[in-house]
């Protein structure tokens, strides 16, 4: 008995080692490129082929690069506005789809998927054609409208899925207990959908922040945003400033995700 137990233990130890190795390989595959980028942002060598010592100079250069910083603030503005507007509109829309019966309800939700699934390039051309036809100047407004449009379906679908997961009687229970339609929405529907609303917002913000294709069609030289600026910079070779910028963005997104997790956790434990 004892020996067989022992060999069984050994077998499981080998198995355990195997799975640890496997997971390490997967993690390395996923994160090695990011690690290289972060390390290179502190590398004195301009080309990054070898380590030439630690430096902050690329970060300094980045902060002094007015064009790049402008593009960054533009991106942030558009991202925050588009994500917030899309989240508000999308939440209302998801609730309407969930709660009410109306003509073209099926068509409405189907069309959301069309927007979500269509290739960026198709959307980009569509927007360009419309803005041209309507004579809308390419810049801030055209960019905001376009970003709002492609973010919206993601919010609607995320929130709608959450609403569908609810006990259908919850809204009736709120009405039954004396809450008007509006109060039901704000004191029951919104708090209960909060996790979905937050993830919808985060998704929208990320989508907006790293969109290149649609943005490059619908913005003009007057309102340049980060991805496009970076894209044009790297065409002539990767500058270490871009490494520094990417590292900054990385920290920013990780912080956002952590913040969202904290908010959700706090909401749950309350």
């Amino acid at each position: 008995m004892k020996t067989s137990d022992h060999s069984g233990y050994q077998g499981s130890a080998i198995k355990k080692l195997g799975s640890v190795l496997f997971i390490s390989a997967v993690l390395a595959y996923l994160y090695a490129p990011i690690a290289v980028l972060v390390v290179n942002s502190f590398n004195s060598s301009k080309y990054g082929h070898s380590w030439r010592g630690f430096t902050w100079k690329w970060y300094e250069k980045l902060l002094n690069n007015g064009n790049l910083m402008d593009a960054f603030w533009h991106s942030l503005t558009i991202g925050l506005l588009a994500a917030t507007l899309a989240t508000m509109l999308g939440t209302f829309m998801a609730y309407a789809l969930y709660r009410y019966k109306f003509a073209l309800k099926k068509a409405t939700s189907g069309l959301l998927f069309v927007v979500m699934m269509s290739p960026d390039i198709v959307l980009a051309i569509t927007f360009l054609v419309i803005f041209m036809a309507l004579g809308i100047h390419l810049g801030f407004w055209s960019l905001l409208i376009a970003h709002l449009t492609f973010c919206l379906p993601f919010v609607v679908i995320t929130v709608y899925a959450r609403l569908n997961g609810f006990d259908g009687n919850l809204i009736e229970a709120a009405r039954d207990l004396g809450a008007s339609e509006t109060r039901t929405f704000f004191s029951v529907v919104v708090p209960m959908s909060m996790p979905a609303i937050i993830s919808g917002w985060l998704l929208s913000f990320t989508l907006s922040l790293d969109d290149v294709i649609v943005s490059s069609f619908v913005t003009g030289p007057g309102y340049e945003i980060l991805p496009i600026r970076v894209f044009s910079m790297v065409r002539v070779g990767v500058s270490p400033e871009v490494n520094a910028l990417a590292t900054g963005l990385l920290i920013f997104s990780v912080a956002l995700v952590v913040l969202a997790q904290l908010i959700l956790k706090k909401g749950k434990s309350q």
């Binding site: 006990d167 009687n169 919850l170 009736e172 229970a173 709120a174 009405r175 039954d176 207990l177 004396g178 809450a179 008007s180 029951v188 708090p191 209960m192 909060m194 909401g267 309350q270």
Partner: peptide
């Protein structure tokens, strides 16, 4: 009269307790 204006309350089969409230 809408549901919220009736002096009538319901105990639902699924209980329908608000999950975000204590």
């Amino acid at each position: 009269l809408p549901a919220e204006k009736r002096p009538i309350n319901t105990v639902f089969q699924s209980y329908a307790l608000f999950p975000h409230l204590t």
